[in-house]
Structure formats: C-alpha cells, structure tokens
Design a protein around this nucleic acid. Structure first.
Lengths: 296, 296
DNA sequence: CGTTATAATTGAATCAATTTCATATTTTTA
DNA sequence: TAAAAATATGAAATTGATTCAATTATAACG
C-alpha cells in the first residue's frame, strides 16, 4: 500500500479547486508541497493523474479513479474520527449491563428508559448473568457494567456503591407472620419460601439468615418474575424475601405486608462494577449518578 | 484528519494477530513501531484501542470501530492501487473513439470486436464527431482517440498513420461512366451525387475534386448508412465517392463498378490521433497495430 | 510465591519522508 | 510579445515515523 489518506484528501481538494495554489490554501500547505505529492503518486503508479498544460487542471482516467476512491473513503474516515471523539468524550459508547439480582429489573428497566433520554447515543443492552462469571467478562470487555451486591477483588475493576436496601419478608396481610414485629429463622420452618430460580448460596435469605440458623423452610418454589412472586404471596401460596424497593411500590396495589428479617434487619448494598478505564467516562458517571438519585 | 491508511493497516493486522510482535513481523516493522503507532492514535483520540493487561490483545469498542473502518477502506484502496497499476501497464484503460468519416464504421466495428478479445479490460466507446471539435476534446481528455484524415497541428497530440486509401467513384455496372477509364469533374455535372450527411467542405470529393474544377453535380442527396448509399448507387439513383476498402468487399455482392477519381486518382490517409501521453500505452499501441494489420 | 520467559512500553537517536523556500519553467492573458 | 499567473524543481529544513536499547509489565513455571 502506497496511498495514504493524505493523498486522497489532497487529490479531492485539488479536483474541487481551479488550480493547485487554490487547493494548497484550503489544505494549509504550499503549492509546492502539493506538486511534490502529485509527482510522487504519478511516479509510484507510473501514470499521469492530471492532464497538464491545460488551464482548468483536468483529471485523467487514473485521477478520476483516485478521486472516486477519495469520495468513498474520506467521509467514512471522517465519520469514524467523529465517532471516536464522541466515544472519548463519553457521549457515545456501549453500556452492556449484567445484573445478578433478578429483582433489579424492577428499578433498572424504568431507569434505563430515563437514561436513554439523556444519552441517546449509548448502546444499551441487559443480560442476565448466568452463563458466565460477570467480573472476568467485565475485565475482558464482553460487558461494561455489572450490578451486584458482592464486592469481589479484581485489580482493573472498581465497585461504585449505588444504594443500600433492606431485605423484607413479604406476606399476605392476614398471614400469621404479618402480626410479628420482625421475623426470626424459625418462623419460616413451616412456610413455603418463594425465590427467584438461582442457587441457594446466591440468595441472601439462605446465606445470611437460614443457613446460619440451620433452618430449612417447609418448602421452596421458584418464580422468574417479581410480579408472579408477589401474586403468589398475596394469594397465600408462600412467603418471599425481597428488597424493600420492590415492595414499597407494590405493597398497596398488591395487598401485601412486609416484615423485617431478624431483630436488627437484613441489609445489603448494590454496587455498579465497571472497568477502571471506563470509570471516568461521562456515560458511566451518568448511569451511576442517575441510579443514586433515583434511590436517594 | 489524523488517521492514515498505515494506521488502519496496522490495526487490522494486530487484530488478526495474537500479539504485537507477531503483527509487527507481517508488517515488516518492529513491535516498538507498532506500540508507538497505537499510542499515537490513543493519544490523539484520548481513548483506549486495546484492552491492555490481558493476554489475547483485546479490542475496545473504539478499536473495534477502527478495525471495522479498516475492513471497508483497505480493500477499496488495494483495488484502486491494483487498477492504477493495470492502467499504467496499459492493460486497463478507456478508449473513447471519435470518427470523422462515416465510412470508417465499415472497418471499425468489426475491428473493435476483434480488439475486445485481446484487451478485455479496456472500456470502448465510439462517438460520431459532430457536436464538438475532436482534437481539443482529445487534448482535454474527453475522448481518447480520433480517427481522421486531417493532420491538424496540436502540440500535445500525435498523429499515427493507419493506412492509405483511394477514393473511388461507385456506379452501377451498366452506368455510362462505368466505361470510362477514370472520372473527371465534368462527368459529374449531370449526376446525382450521394454523400454522407456532413458539410461539403468536409468531403474530399468537393474540396479536392469538384470545388477546384468549379463543377456542381446535377443533384446531391444524403444517406446515413454506407449500405443505403451502395443500394442507391446499384439501383441507379445516383453515384457516390467512397474509399476503396468499402467497395472492395461489397463490389461483388452489391453489383457495382468503381472508377478512379481524376487521371492520377484521389488518395487519402487515415490517422489515429492520440495524446502524446497516451501514445506509449499498450492498449493504444494495440489498437494502432491491429488496424494497420487489417489494412496491411 | 518467587523466578524466568515473553510481551509491551518508553525515551532517545536515527532515519525517512514531507514540506518549505527559493528559483526556474511553463502556460495564460492582455 | 511581454507580463502575470500557475506549476515544477532541487536543496534545505522540518516534521514525523521507525528503530534501538533499556525498562516495565504480564504470563508461565517449577
């Protein structure tokens, strides 16, 4: 490859000018530089590009082919350069989010609708993190943001605290447990516990509450969607432990009561994990700030 | 514009290699050069292109966009470079021919069929030269070859002799003039002269034969096609002056007799006019040699 | 977990290429 | 035909890219 973008730009400009001197001005070069440039191209290809000795600098067939190339290449390059600058400014980018907690859909989906308004050029996608470990995937650039409650060690990743939540037991208003001030592990011994379909050791109810007390619920059952879980609870088919933000909004409409887990409550924190290199990107900042505001 | 083809080529190669060193080998550069090149791009756009600190050198979103650009730009550039080299070698080019003499169609069209076989990548076109002066058009690159019998002065144009011809009077075999050894101007005083539809001063019969003798034919009539002229002559609707090569082939089939013009005959030469810069091009040489052989 | 091997970065020096400057040549215009 | 405008050219200067040598980082291995 001999040609460079520079050559194409010069050629294009010359073809749009009446003479070399005029072209050289708009290119911020001397006319001599252009003359040398053309000669170099003509030497390399061993063919004329301009019909010399004619007033309105006329292209030869070879010249026309080059200008044609310039016409297709230059705009493409200019576009990409513009896009890259936008990316660098954080106005454009990819935000592929993985969430580990199913319940997060409840606030994430409406939040993203709002986000899209401020960041129209960010390519958003959400994946449920099951088939792969999210933090390595983040390191490798397969995804761009992980919403998680585990702060794992990884040197090129930062964890930004989004908000705290309290896990609450959701029961039907006429359920016996609705009368208790707070729930202890033994209370669940005779209950059906409804959870999202994930491993037990990824559920706080088990890891932080039932396992330590050595208690096993009477039965467990899984449901994919939060709305289904809430309906099951309302119709007294079981109880569920959910973050307070899910329940706060739906308590009234779904006719539910919530009770704290344990005497001092069960709390957690949600983090946004991002690559250190992305941390300062405007569209990442924007996402973090927005979610903090929503839950502030 | 900051990006150059060089950058795109490096990027593309790196993206297809396992590491910088490997890429640098196929690019015939040191790995240091590549490292500097990448850094320059990253500095300019203020954004990462590769996910560092990971074994299989992984592209960032920005990097992917650049490789995408390279994928579209590099083949286009390579194609044009190849085409230009072909053009320089004369294997590819444009041969837009203008003919001034209508009769030339008779040998030109079959000749071009033959030419196309040897020069498949030459873009051929024929135009009847009426609306413009052919030699300036040639200078300006609007056309590439003029077939003419006038050798006009023009400094960037060369005239290559193709072949000589004799202008002959075509008459029906039982026409009184068929018995004469040769034709004198007065012989046409009582004849209908059939010509191609062009100005008189562009017809040799008038400029070289009738005007000097001050003779006007009894009538003139025009016909576009040589075949029509020949038919008209055969059916004794008039006489016509045509180059010998036209008549040689059709004399037998069309039942015609030919007679020389003047005691010493009327001769002419056909030239191919081309730009000096094109003269050496293989496909121009090819055209000239072919027509010379046909008429040799 | 430290050691070795491999790969990437960095800064300085070198080398190559492009641009400018000054001038000559060519072409156009009056 | 002279003057003006445009282009071409060669040498010097500048810019920019590449290499070299050394350092640092990363992966591989015992």
């Amino acid at each position: 490859m001999f040609l460079e973008i520079r050559h194409l730009l010069s050629l294009k400009t010359i073809s749009e000018s009446r003479n070399l001197s005029e072209a050289s001005e708009s290119l911020h070069l001397t006319q001599s530089a252009l003359s040398h440039q053309i000669k170099a191209i003509e030497n390399y290809f061993d063919t004329q590009i301009f019909q010399r000795q004619h007033k309105p600098l006329q292209l030869t067939a070879a010249g026309r082919r080059l200008v044609e190339l310039a016409d297709s290449v230059l705009p493409a390059v200019a576009d990409v350069e513009y896009e890259l600058k936008q990316m660098a400014a954080g106005e454009r980018g990819r935000l592929h989010i993985t969430i580990e907690c199913h319940a997060c859909f409840e606030w994430l989906l409406p939040a993203l609708d709002q986000y899209r308004e401020t960041w129209p050029d960010i390519e958003i996608d959400i994946r449920l993190g099951m088939s792969f470990e999210p933090i390595p995937a983040l390191s490798q650039g397969k995804i761009d943001l992980v919403i998680t409650s585990d702060r794992l060690a990884a040197k090129d990743i930062v964890f930004e605290e989004l908000f705290n939540y309290q896990a609450m037991l959701a029961v039907a208003p006429d359920h016996p447990l609705a009368k208790k001030e707070y729930i202890v592990a033994e209370d669940l011994k005779n209950e059906t516990l409804i959870t999202y379909p994930v491993e037990r050791n990824r559920l706080d109810v088990f890891t932080k509450f039932l396992f330590p007390a050595g208690i096993e619920p009477a039965a467990t059952r899984q449901a994919e969607l939060t709305a289904i879980i809430l309906q099951l609870v309302a119709s007294r088919r079981g109880v569920a432990v959910l973050p307070d933000w899910v329940l706060r909004e739906t308590m009234a409409t779904n006719n539910l009561t919530t009770r704290p887990i344990g005497a001092s409550g069960m709390f957690g924190t949600l983090y946004a994990a991002v690559r250190k290199t992305d941390r300062q990107a405007a569209f990442i900042e924007g996402f973090i700030n927005m979610t903090r505001e929503i839950h502030g």
